[in-house]
Amino acid sequence: MSLLRVEGVSKSYGNERVLRDVTFGMDRGDVEVVVGPSGSGKSTLLRCVNRLTEVDAGEVYLDDACVTAPDTDVDALRRQVGMVFQGFNLFAHLTARKNVTLGLRRVLGMDAAAAREKADAHLERVGLGAQADSYPAELSGGQQQRVGIARALAMDPKLMLFDEPTSALDPELIGEVLGVMRDLVAEGMTMLVVTHEMGFARSAADTLSFLEDGRIVERGPPERLFERPEHERTAAFLGRLTDLHGGSADRSVEADGRPDAGGESGPASDRAGGTSGADGAGGP
């Protein structure tokens, strides 16, 4: 049973068709990386999944519940889907800890002590236990993004959406964020990731989709798209990205100096099966 099904989704802004009949599915524990030139609709696709953007046509199903139905409780839906933003979007007036507890308290209704404990655990998990009392402006970009990930994870989502999580970061800070994302992959989190980090796509993704002009041009295991792409556009785009955003070199390993949880040998080879279970960190 698929965790996420996107069926024939189309979206236009005015005359500009951002998504055209996009269809794909993800199983529990899958890691799907979406790449494509800017303006190709990647962000819009993510935002259609948690309904920050309304689709014009098509349906999205999460766990067989129709996300796009008009009577769906969007707030209840979004509780199950974590989102990490390119610009971090941390709540600027709250400390790192309170960024995490806000949702726990006001959405899940946890009491202050329990929320605090859970928030601290999640900040610890992304390596920011010591920064719990810092305000976003006092943190580096990489730290902010890790708080953003902790904030989303604390809600115990079934699915995590990453919208270019490292694109706004200085190169030396990318590794720490990718490191946290790799830990998540190893824990079996279901992740839909828009990124230009080809090293991550190659080694961590189960499936790679190349999106252009709102269409999925090509989709498949990353090694096939990298080695034997069917479309010339895919080859040209992936080649250019690999030149720019480090292909084989793995930044999370480079920066952290710690072994990569996902392993370099083959994508997802050592992860518990793609289709079944492995959702220890998944659903509540």
């Binding site: 920050l52 989102m83 979007n89 709540f91 959405v107």
Partner: peptide, 13 residues
């Protein structure tokens, strides 16, 4: 910033 409310909505507020 508009992203502030977006982030709030994204966690289910």
């Amino acid at each position: 910033a508009a992203g502030q409310l977006t982030a709030a909505r994204a966690i289910g507020l």
